[in-house]
Write a protein that binds this DNA or RNA. Structure first.
Lengths: 141, 141
DNA sequence: GCAAGTGGTCAAGCAGCTTGACTATGTGAC
DNA sequence: GTCACATAGTCAAGCTGCTTGACCACTTGC
C-alpha cells in the first residue's frame, strides 16, 4: 500500500473514530463542526475568521454558526470595539462537546500506542509535524 | 500541535496537492473521483461495488459514474455472465488521469523526502500502514 | 463628512447526496 | 417448470451544505 494511500486511510479512519466517539457521548455534530470548534475554542472568533479557517464563504460560515447556536453549542455576542462584528463563543455545552472530541481523539491515539508503542507514536507525530502545512486545518475533499 | 491535528493537516494538504496537480495537468475531476478511480483502475467494477467502496448509496455511485462517462473518463460495458450488472471501466482518458494523479502524488511524496529524507519517509509509511484500517479508502468528512 | 472598505446577513441557486419506488434479471425451494 | 424472493441498476423527488449576488450597518481614511 502506497504512502499516500495509508495516510489518507489513517486520516479517514481517525475522522470517523472521533465523530463516532463524539456521537456516542451524546452530541449531534458533523466532522466540519469539529474544525469550527478548534477555531472557536480559545476565545471565540468572528464569522469571517471562521470562514477563513474553514476555507469557505462567510455566508456558509454564518449558516454553520446558526446551526451551532440552534443546537446550543455556541452563541453570538457583541464584539468589543466594533459594532459590526460579533464574537462567536462556545457555550458550556460547546465546551463539553470539545472535551468529548478530545477524549475520542485520545482513545484513537491510545489504540495506536497499543500497536506501535509510545515511542514510535511520538516519532510518528514528529515526522508528520514536519511535513504538515502550518495553515488552518480544514476539510479537504 | 497534537498528533491527530498534524495527521489531519497532512492528509488534507496531500488531498489538495493531488487534486491541484491533476487539474494542472488538464483534467476536470473532484477528489471523490480519485477514490472511484482507485477502485475502477484494475479491471473495472460494478456500480454496487463502487458504492460500497465509496461508502455511499448505489444511486449516488450511479450518478458519479454518469459524470465520469459524460466527461469521457469511464464507460459502461455489459457484465459477462449477468445481464443485470454492468462493468464500469476506465477509458484511455481515464487511465491518463490516473497516471496524472500518481504523478501528482509522487510529487507530494518527493517534497516530503526533501524534508525528512528517504529513510524517514519509508519508516513513516511503515508506521502508518500499521495503524491504517484495511478497508476501502474513502472520503471521510 | 463622504467615499471606500469591512463584518454580517438575506435570498436564490446549485451540486451531491439521500430515500423511495420501480424494472429487469438472477436464484433457489418445491 | 414456476413462483417467491433477492440483486443490479435506474428514475424521481427531496434535503443539506455550500455557492454567488445583493444588501445593510458600521468603520476607516482622506
Amino acid at each position: 500500500m502506497a504512502l499516500t494511500a495509508v495516510l489518507l486511510a489513517a486520516a479517514g479512519d481517525l475522522t470517523r473514530r472521533i465523530n463516532d466517539g463524539v456521537e456516542a457521548r451524546g452530541f449531534e455534530v458533523r466532522p466540519a463542526h469539529g474544525f469550527a470548534f478548534t477555531r472557536l475554542a480559545p476565545d471565540g472568533a468572528t464569522v469571517t475568521d471562521l470562514a477563513t479557517h474553514l476555507g469557505m464563504t462567510k455566508q456558509a460560515a454564518s449558516q454553520l454558526v446558526d446551526e451551532l447556536v440552534r443546537k446550543g453549542y455556541a452563541e453570538r455576542r457583541p464584539y468589543p470595539g466594533d459594532a459590526r462584528a460579533r464574537l462567536v463563543v462556545l457555550t458550556e455545552l460547546g465546551w463539553a462537546c470539545t472535551r468529548a472530541a478530545e477524549e475520542a481523539a485520545a482513545d484513537a491515539v491510545r489504540a495506536w500506542v497499543d500497536v506501535l508503542g509510545e515511542g514510535e507514536v511520538r516519532v510518528l507525530r514528529d515526522r508528520l509535524a514536519r511535513i504538515a502545512p502550518y495553515g488552518p486545518i480544514r476539510p479537504a475533499w
